[in-house]
Protein backbone atom coordinates (compact mmCIF):
# COMPACT_ATOMS: atom_id res chain seq x y z
CA UNK A 1 0.00 0.00 0.00
CA UNK A 2 1.74 3.11 -1.23
CA UNK A 3 -1.14 5.50 -0.87
CA UNK A 4 -0.29 8.83 0.73
CA UNK A 5 -3.07 10.25 2.81
CA UNK A 6 -3.47 13.93 2.29
CA UNK A 7 -6.06 15.76 4.32
CA UNK A 8 -4.49 19.18 3.75
CA UNK A 9 -6.33 19.73 0.50
CA UNK A 10 -9.59 19.52 2.42
CA UNK A 11 -8.80 22.30 4.87
CA UNK A 12 -9.81 24.98 2.42
CA UNK A 13 -13.28 23.47 2.25
CA UNK A 14 -14.19 23.60 5.91
CA UNK A 15 -16.83 26.31 5.49
CA UNK A 16 -18.59 24.09 2.95
CA UNK A 17 -18.45 21.06 5.20
CA UNK A 18 -19.89 23.20 7.96
CA UNK A 19 -22.64 24.50 5.73
CA UNK A 20 -23.50 20.97 4.61
CA UNK A 21 -23.64 19.76 8.19
CA UNK A 22 -25.84 22.71 9.10
CA UNK A 23 -28.26 21.92 6.27
CA UNK A 24 -28.31 18.27 7.31
CA UNK A 25 -29.26 19.34 10.83
CA UNK A 26 -31.92 21.71 9.52
CA UNK A 27 -33.42 19.07 7.24
CA UNK A 28 -33.47 16.55 10.08
CA UNK A 29 -34.92 18.99 12.60
CA UNK A 30 -37.78 20.07 10.34
CA UNK A 31 -38.51 16.48 9.32
CA UNK A 32 -38.37 15.31 12.92
CA UNK A 33 -40.87 17.89 14.15
CA UNK A 34 -43.30 17.50 11.24
CA UNK A 35 -42.84 13.73 11.18
CA UNK A 36 -43.57 13.54 14.89
CA UNK A 37 -46.81 15.49 14.48
CA UNK A 38 -47.87 13.41 11.47
CA UNK A 39 -46.93 10.15 13.15
CA UNK A 40 -48.71 10.95 16.40
CA UNK A 41 -51.90 11.97 14.59
CA UNK A 42 -51.73 8.75 12.59
CA UNK A 43 -51.19 6.70 15.73
CA UNK A 44 -54.26 8.27 17.35
CA UNK A 45 -56.25 7.69 14.19
CA UNK A 46 -55.13 4.10 14.02
CA UNK A 47 -55.97 3.22 17.59
CA UNK A 48 -59.13 5.31 18.02
CA UNK A 49 -60.44 6.35 14.61
CA UNK A 50 -63.29 5.00 12.50
CA UNK A 51 -62.54 1.83 10.51
CA UNK A 52 -61.72 3.61 7.26
CA UNK A 53 -59.17 5.83 9.00
CA UNK A 54 -57.62 2.78 10.62
CA UNK A 55 -57.37 1.07 7.26
CA UNK A 56 -55.91 4.16 5.59
CA UNK A 57 -53.26 4.67 8.28
CA UNK A 58 -52.37 0.98 8.34
CA UNK A 59 -51.86 0.97 4.56
CA UNK A 60 -49.77 4.13 4.72
CA UNK A 61 -47.54 2.68 7.42
CA UNK A 62 -47.08 -0.65 5.65
CA UNK A 63 -46.35 0.89 2.26
CA UNK A 64 -43.77 3.31 3.65
CA UNK A 65 -42.07 0.80 5.92
CA UNK A 66 -41.71 -1.78 3.17
CA UNK A 67 -40.22 0.41 0.43
CA UNK A 68 -36.77 2.04 0.38
CA UNK A 69 -36.42 5.71 1.26
CA UNK A 70 -34.42 6.22 -1.93
CA UNK A 71 -37.39 5.20 -4.08
CA UNK A 72 -39.73 7.34 -1.97
CA UNK A 73 -37.44 10.31 -2.51
CA UNK A 74 -37.44 9.69 -6.27
CA UNK A 75 -41.22 9.39 -6.38
CA UNK A 76 -41.68 12.64 -4.47
CA UNK A 77 -39.05 14.58 -6.39
CA UNK A 78 -39.78 13.39 -9.93
CA UNK A 79 -43.43 12.64 -9.28
CA UNK A 80 -44.27 16.16 -8.14
CA UNK A 81 -42.35 17.54 -11.10
CA UNK A 82 -44.44 15.55 -13.58
CA UNK A 83 -47.58 16.91 -11.94
CA UNK A 84 -46.33 20.29 -13.10
CA UNK A 85 -45.53 21.68 -9.67
CA UNK A 86 -42.03 22.97 -9.24
CA UNK A 87 -40.42 22.21 -5.89
CA UNK A 88 -36.82 22.65 -4.87
CA UNK A 89 -34.72 19.57 -4.08
CA UNK A 90 -34.65 20.61 -0.43
CA UNK A 91 -38.43 20.86 -0.22
CA UNK A 92 -38.84 17.48 -1.92
CA UNK A 93 -36.30 16.04 0.51
CA UNK A 94 -38.24 17.34 3.51
CA UNK A 95 -41.55 16.03 2.16
CA UNK A 96 -40.08 12.57 1.55
CA UNK A 97 -38.37 12.46 4.95
CA UNK A 98 -41.53 13.61 6.77
CA UNK A 99 -43.69 11.02 5.03
CA UNK A 100 -41.08 8.38 5.77
CA UNK A 101 -40.44 9.12 9.42
CA UNK A 102 -44.15 9.74 10.04
CA UNK A 103 -44.85 6.07 9.37
CA UNK A 104 -42.15 4.89 11.76
CA UNK A 105 -43.25 7.38 14.42
CA UNK A 106 -46.82 6.13 14.04
CA UNK A 107 -45.79 2.56 14.83
CA UNK A 108 -43.70 3.59 17.82
CA UNK A 109 -46.30 5.94 19.32
CA UNK A 110 -49.04 3.37 18.73
CA UNK A 111 -47.08 0.89 20.84
CA UNK A 112 -46.99 3.57 23.54
CA UNK A 113 -50.72 4.27 23.30
CA UNK A 114 -51.47 0.56 23.60
CA UNK A 115 -49.34 0.31 26.71
CA UNK A 116 -51.62 2.68 28.65
CA UNK A 117 -53.54 0.51 31.04
CA UNK A 118 -57.32 0.40 30.83
CA UNK A 119 -57.70 1.02 34.55
CA UNK A 120 -55.96 4.37 34.05
CA UNK A 121 -58.71 5.44 31.67
CA UNK A 122 -61.40 4.26 34.07
CA UNK A 123 -59.75 6.11 36.93
CA UNK A 124 -59.57 9.28 34.85
CA UNK A 125 -63.22 8.85 33.94
CA UNK A 126 -64.16 8.45 37.61
CA UNK A 127 -62.25 11.62 38.47
CA UNK A 128 -64.48 13.47 36.01
CA UNK A 129 -61.81 14.41 33.50
CA UNK A 130 -63.14 15.51 30.15
CA UNK A 131 -62.34 13.52 27.02
CA UNK A 132 -59.63 15.95 25.78
CA UNK A 133 -58.12 16.05 29.28
CA UNK A 134 -57.99 12.26 29.42
CA UNK A 135 -56.43 12.19 26.00
CA UNK A 136 -53.74 14.72 26.81
CA UNK A 137 -52.85 13.88 30.41
CA UNK A 138 -53.55 10.18 30.69
CA UNK A 139 -52.96 8.78 27.23
CA UNK A 140 -50.68 10.84 25.02
CA UNK A 141 -48.14 12.25 27.42
CA UNK A 142 -47.40 9.04 29.33
CA UNK A 143 -47.40 7.08 26.06
CA UNK A 144 -44.82 9.34 24.48
CA UNK A 145 -42.77 9.44 27.64
CA UNK A 146 -42.62 5.67 27.55
CA UNK A 147 -41.57 5.34 23.92
CA UNK A 148 -39.28 8.38 23.93
CA UNK A 149 -36.04 6.32 23.82
CA UNK A 150 -37.28 4.46 20.74
CA UNK A 151 -38.25 7.76 19.13
CA UNK A 152 -34.78 9.12 19.86
CA UNK A 153 -33.09 6.27 17.99
CA UNK A 154 -35.52 6.68 15.13
CA UNK A 155 -34.69 10.36 14.77
CA UNK A 156 -30.95 9.70 14.86
CA UNK A 157 -31.51 7.18 12.06
CA UNK A 158 -33.50 9.85 10.23
CA UNK A 159 -30.59 12.26 10.45
CA UNK A 160 -28.30 9.61 8.96
CA UNK A 161 -30.89 8.68 6.33
CA UNK A 162 -31.12 12.30 5.21
CA UNK A 163 -27.82 11.58 3.42
CA UNK A 164 -29.94 9.75 0.84
CA UNK A 165 -31.44 13.04 -0.29
CA UNK A 166 -28.05 13.87 -1.82
CA UNK A 167 -29.26 11.64 -4.65
CA UNK A 168 -31.72 14.34 -5.72
CA UNK A 169 -29.05 16.98 -5.15
CA UNK A 170 -30.36 18.45 -1.93
CA UNK A 171 -27.25 20.34 -0.82
CA UNK A 172 -26.72 18.57 2.51
CA UNK A 173 -23.52 17.10 3.90
CA UNK A 174 -23.22 14.07 1.62
CA UNK A 175 -23.91 16.14 -1.49
CA UNK A 176 -21.24 18.61 -0.36
CA UNK A 177 -18.85 15.68 0.07
CA UNK A 178 -19.62 14.38 -3.41
CA UNK A 179 -18.81 17.78 -4.87
CA UNK A 180 -15.63 18.30 -2.87
CA UNK A 181 -14.25 14.87 -3.71
CA UNK A 182 -14.77 15.50 -7.41
CA UNK A 183 -13.01 18.86 -7.05
CA UNK A 184 -10.02 17.63 -5.06
CA UNK A 185 -9.75 13.96 -6.14
CA UNK A 186 -9.22 13.21 -2.45
CA UNK A 187 -12.22 10.90 -2.33
CA UNK A 188 -11.21 8.62 0.50
CA UNK A 189 -10.12 11.45 2.77
CA UNK A 190 -13.27 13.42 2.02
CA UNK A 191 -15.54 10.57 3.02
CA UNK A 192 -13.50 9.87 6.15
CA UNK A 193 -13.95 13.49 7.20
CA UNK A 194 -17.65 13.39 6.40
CA UNK A 195 -18.04 10.08 8.21
CA UNK A 196 -16.52 11.64 11.32
CA UNK A 197 -18.81 14.66 10.97
CA UNK A 198 -21.82 12.35 10.78
CA UNK A 199 -20.63 10.48 13.87
CA UNK A 200 -20.34 13.79 15.70
CA UNK A 201 -23.77 14.87 14.45
CA UNK A 202 -25.43 11.66 15.63
CA UNK A 203 -23.80 12.22 19.01
CA UNK A 204 -25.07 15.81 19.09
CA UNK A 205 -28.60 14.80 18.06
CA UNK A 206 -28.67 12.08 20.71
CA UNK A 207 -27.56 14.50 23.43
CA UNK A 208 -29.98 17.20 22.27
CA UNK A 209 -32.93 14.80 22.29
CA UNK A 210 -31.91 13.49 25.71
CA UNK A 211 -31.80 17.04 27.11
CA UNK A 212 -35.12 17.82 25.44
CA UNK A 213 -36.57 14.74 27.13
CA UNK A 214 -35.32 15.95 30.52
CA UNK A 215 -36.99 19.32 30.01
CA UNK A 216 -40.29 17.97 28.71
CA UNK A 217 -40.85 14.95 30.93
CA UNK A 218 -40.87 16.65 34.32
CA UNK A 219 -42.33 13.71 36.19
CA UNK A 220 -39.63 11.36 34.96
CA UNK A 221 -36.92 13.85 35.86
CA UNK A 222 -38.22 14.36 39.38
CA UNK A 223 -38.97 10.73 40.19
CA UNK A 224 -36.17 9.25 38.09
CA UNK A 225 -38.26 6.21 37.20
CA UNK A 226 -39.87 4.97 34.06
CA UNK A 227 -43.64 4.82 34.08
Amino acid sequence: MTYQFDFSALWAFWPEFLQGAWLTLQLSAVSTVLGFVLGTLCAIGRSDGPPWVKFLVASYVEVIRNTPLLVQVFIVYFGIATLGIKVSANAAAVIALVVNVGAYTCEIVRAGLESVHKSQLEAADCLGLSKPQIYWHVIIRPAIERVYPALTSQYVLLMLASSITSQISAEELTAVANRIQSDTFRSFETYIVVGIIYLALSFVVRIALWLFGLVVFVRKRKLGTAL
Partner: peptide
Protein backbone atom coordinates in the same frame (compact mmCIF):
# COMPACT_ATOMS: atom_id res chain seq x y z
CA UNK B 1 -23.43 6.41 13.65
CA UNK B 2 -22.49 6.89 10.01
CA UNK B 3 -24.83 6.71 7.03
CA UNK B 4 -24.64 3.59 4.86
CA UNK B 5 -24.11 5.89 1.89
CA UNK B 6 -20.83 7.19 3.35
CA UNK B 7 -19.79 3.65 4.26
CA UNK B 8 -20.32 2.54 0.66
CA UNK B 9 -18.33 5.47 -0.70
CA UNK B 10 -15.49 4.68 1.72
Amino acid sequence: GTPLLILLFL
